[in-house]
Nucleic acid binder design. Sequence first.
DNA 1: GACGGCATACCAACTGGTTGGTATGTCTGT
DNA 2: ACAGACATACCAACCAGTTGGTATGCCGTC
Lengths: 214, 214
Amino acid sequence: MVSHSIEPSSSGGARQRLLDAAVSVIRAKGYAATTVDELCADAGVTKGAFFHHFPTKDALAVAAAKHWSEITDAHFAAAPYGRLDDPLDRVLGYLDFRKALLRGAVAKFTCLVGTMVQEAYQTHPDIRSACDASISGHAARVESDIAEAMKRHRVRAAWTAESLALHMQAVLQGAFILAKAKGSAAAAEASIDHLRRYIELLFSRPRTKAKRKI
Amino acid sequence: MVSHSIEPSSSGGARQRLLDAAVSVIRAKGYAATTVDELCADAGVTKGAFFHHFPTKDALAVAAAKHWSEITDAHFAAAPYGRLDDPLDRVLGYLDFRKALLRGAVAKFTCLVGTMVQEAYQTHPDIRSACDASISGHAARVESDIAEAMKRHRVRAAWTAESLALHMQAVLQGAFILAKAKGSAAAAEASIDHLRRYIELLFSRPRTKAKRKI
DNA sequence: GACGGCATACCAACTGGTTGGTATGTCTGT
DNA sequence: ACAGACATACCAACCAGTTGGTATGCCGTC
């Protein structure tokens, strides 16, 4: 154990396990229905440990949103599409990557902050803004690729890179709702296909490589 | 009145007021965070009345989803775009109509079943399927217009009318999440604009009439 | 057309279990 | 010795659901 770890959470123990538990339990049951006791049980710690690290349940939610951002940022930063040359390929590759993630149980591929903000947007301002930061921050990474792609491919349009990046997040979040409602990822995949086709049309690129089986 | 009444709303009094209260309170606070007492207070009835009409809180949620379908079906059936001749105009008119609804408080224009299904999809199967029925039923109405438009405009495509109708709902649901996260409808409007543009591109129609101010 | 029988619609008070949070103690590394 | 990291025991508030009651309208019978 070295003096100071650069990690935001210096103790590898209870705090980290609680954050991981929050991510998995809240995605499955929602925020309000998730109890502190259940979080502790899932994390394998006691209630005393919980309130040692987080002053309130709401504070955990805010921390979990940041934790979620870190997890997802690392995940997408490590994905191979980021090394493609053409920024448009990176944008489309991002979508292919996201589509490929729709595997297994619904609770395992849906978005924590999208779930939380629906419950908390009006009653818990700090949770709302933490979720907003997570979504907007993620969108901003895609936005820069979009902006580059617009330059490279000389697209002059009435829409902005920012609005398209947010639209992409909207489609993904909506796709998760469809998956939750229908209990399967099929409709979500088809929705991502539509989004990909839209972007191809915007950039006047003939469709390639995507597997069409809507 | 006969012994068994399975009518959706047999009594005009407490039951109806409870359903209306459910629609407004759950949209603002989410399902789990909404208490029976609060519903009763909002509806101006007592707890006894609540459990007279609904065996459990979950049963109210299922009934509220159906109530929501009835409300929205009536609302969209009465909208003027439905009388347009060209089915493609009806599809685009539907989107314009939905965009125009994004006014006032976020809780007043978001979707009840989209909110509920996020919390209940895994823990309350009956609520999930009621929400699915509401979303899918609504999508089916748009789907028939899309199918007609594809015929009329001789669009032969890799995608189906069903998948596009569901995609439209995904965008709308995702737009609501953006609105909740950002506390304003601006991003949601821009997302609907993107969806409209996509459909115009699919049907090779030059953009007209839409106000572009993304 | 008065009456009893009965179902529906609602009300007010209560309950048992749950929940977020606290008070206080203990262990460990330095 | 001392501070941070946990554990144990506990509580007051809250919550879904229950209990037992009343008011009212309907329907067949005499």
